Amino acid sequence: MANSYGTGPAPFPATSPPPGNYPPPPGDRGRLWLLAGIGALVVAIVAILATVVVMRDSGSTPSPTALPASTTKPVTTAPATTTPSSTLTPRIPGYQVVVPKDLKAAWDIPKDWTIDPSTTTYGTDADHLAAAGFSEEGVDYCPNNVRTNMFLSTSDISDATAAATDVGAHAARLGWSTRTSSQAGTPQPLDAGDNTLHGTFLETTGAFTAPTGCATTFSVYTFAVSAGPTNGSLVLVIVADTGVDRSVTPDFARKLFASFRLL
């Protein structure tokens, strides 16, 4: 299946280097925190899915849970090495599978995207999102910019819609320091993993000041899956310059998110 995206500007203005260039924190402590955080969420989601299946089979209905309040705190930095899987078959024919090391989760990306095992955070040392399974496309498509990045992060917010909104806004602040606008769109339900994962899809759009030849608009696509009333959420993120050749569209983002699955 051909890639359904084109070429264009990057989500990082020339005054701000791509997230892959930020050095990881010293030692393995950050890596352990990330793996523990995302790993625990994966386990929690697996347990919830098993419970839902049992309750469905027994004819009972799970009671609704209250939505948590407040904003999320990004999980501490995370050096998690990632490699394409050599054994898993991509859900999207002709694509490659991203499998973060030590995490039982996977998703598909186009063959021409590059997985960067050295990048474990998105942003700066002072302000960042944890990032596992980091990939990039369109490096230097225009001066000093990367067109698209994708990674898995976490949120302390258990409501999927709130988590998708919060992480989208945070990623927009981190990715485009010269932004002139940023606005969250309408949350939409999205199923992934052959309809075993039910979450929220959200597009956050905005504009920014950029060098000649670079995009001047951006989108942050987020797909959040709740791990339960008190366990936070997993959030798959795509940050992308838009309005240029090979830029990621909402439909293409949904296609990639739909390939997300737990192993």
Results as ranks from 00 to 15, higher is better:
R56Y: 04
A132M: 09
P17G: 05
P93D: 08
V248S: 01
A69I: 08
D166M: 04
F12Y: 11
A36L: 14
A47P: 02
A207S: 14
L34D: 00
F134C: 04
Y122L: 05
T178A: 10
A2C: 00
A169V: 02
A130V: 12
T120F: 04
S4A: 11
D57K: 14
S60E: 11
M55W: 00
V75L: 14
G6Q: 12
F201T: 10
N149L: 02
A227W: 08
T249L: 05
V167E: 01
K104P: 00
N21P: 01
A50H: 07
T76K: 09
T196D: 01
P68V: 09
P23N: 10
P9G: 15
P19I: 02
N145D: 15
K255H: 14
L202W: 03
A80L: 15
A169E: 12
G199F: 04
A215D: 14
W113Y: 12
P68R: 11
Y22Q: 13
I92G: 02
V248D: 03
F223V: 04
L256R: 08
P13F: 04
T178G: 02
G185P: 09
A253D: 04
T77M: 07
P143G: 03
D112Q: 11
G232K: 09
P187M: 02
M150K: 09
A224K: 07
N149V: 15
W33M: 12
D125Q: 12
S16W: 14
